[in-house]
Design a protein around this nucleic acid. Sequence first.
DNA 1: TATTGTTATACTCTATAACTATA
DNA 2: TATAGTTATAGAGTATAACAATA
Lengths: 163, 163
Amino acid sequence: MERSNTVGRNGQGLSPRADFLLADRTGYLLNKAAMLIAEDAERALETVGMRLRYFFVLTSLAGGPELSQQDLARLLNLDPTTVVALVDEMERNQHVERRRNPADRRRYTLVLTESGRTALSAAEQVVTDAEAAFFGPLTGAERAGMQDMLIRLLEGRWPSSVC
Amino acid sequence: MERSNTVGRNGQGLSPRADFLLADRTGYLLNKAAMLIAEDAERALETVGMRLRYFFVLTSLAGGPELSQQDLARLLNLDPTTVVALVDEMERNQHVERRRNPADRRRYTLVLTESGRTALSAAEQVVTDAEAAFFGPLTGAERAGMQDMLIRLLEGRWPSSVC
DNA sequence: TATTGTTATACTCTATAACTATA
DNA sequence: TATAGTTATAGAGTATAACAATA
């Protein structure tokens, strides 16, 4: 049921106009949009039995250089202890192997398995579809422009090794 | 069916490029950017002793129509029980008053106090500065374009009453 | 019967500290 | 001494269910 607002936002006589509205805050809009696309992607991934963070890890391992658990933690802004649990799960699913790095035997090198690649492919499809739906209101050029702007905003705040 | 993939990206000669890198995912970039600006804003607000969500609530109350706690929950994607705790805190700080809505005595109308407005003003300054720094890499036109695109992406997924 | 605000509770997620093995 | 990974645990944050008052 909708509320009947007796007083309009822009102050029809009474209500004082605020200096900043929520919708004026680029940062707020960014957060709201991020939340919605994350929800959409999470919902899409449910159909293939995967969580979003799991998908991010698979993508990171598939696309980049060799990564250790610490690398993953830094890259995805996860706590190292969270990565342990995640990789445990991925290893149980045989999507990832831990291989000791001979150059530094403290580290594991995380290796995507064939099965992991297969799971990733299926996940990529549903996520790509979800993104296409979400960014549907934008033209291709606009979306490319947003992509470019976001990358520039992230410049220097991204762990060196990837991207 | 097993791990016959010595094809991993460790092979210097034959590293297969992934179909999608993390940086190709507009959704991922959106999330990363949102996380960073939220962190920046949170850090900026520390200097005035305020949390980001608190700031969002103050902004919502200052700028919009009368809001109940349920309205706030829907607007800011918060759980109604979380809003109770938040408003409790704001009432202790005398930034907000709960007034029974005579038209529907189940609801409170949340009213910003003068002291709340003062706190909001101080917070607006530091958040505006943090946003200016974060979006510094963009031209004014670009930032306006992003603002416009974000609003279009949120269209229809925003509670009707506000924005 | 449905909704607002509330409390109590359970659950999930994340952060902290300590330990090991390597460097 | 410092770092990677691990474990156990504490803490924050969130969701769930039940309830009273009101519609």
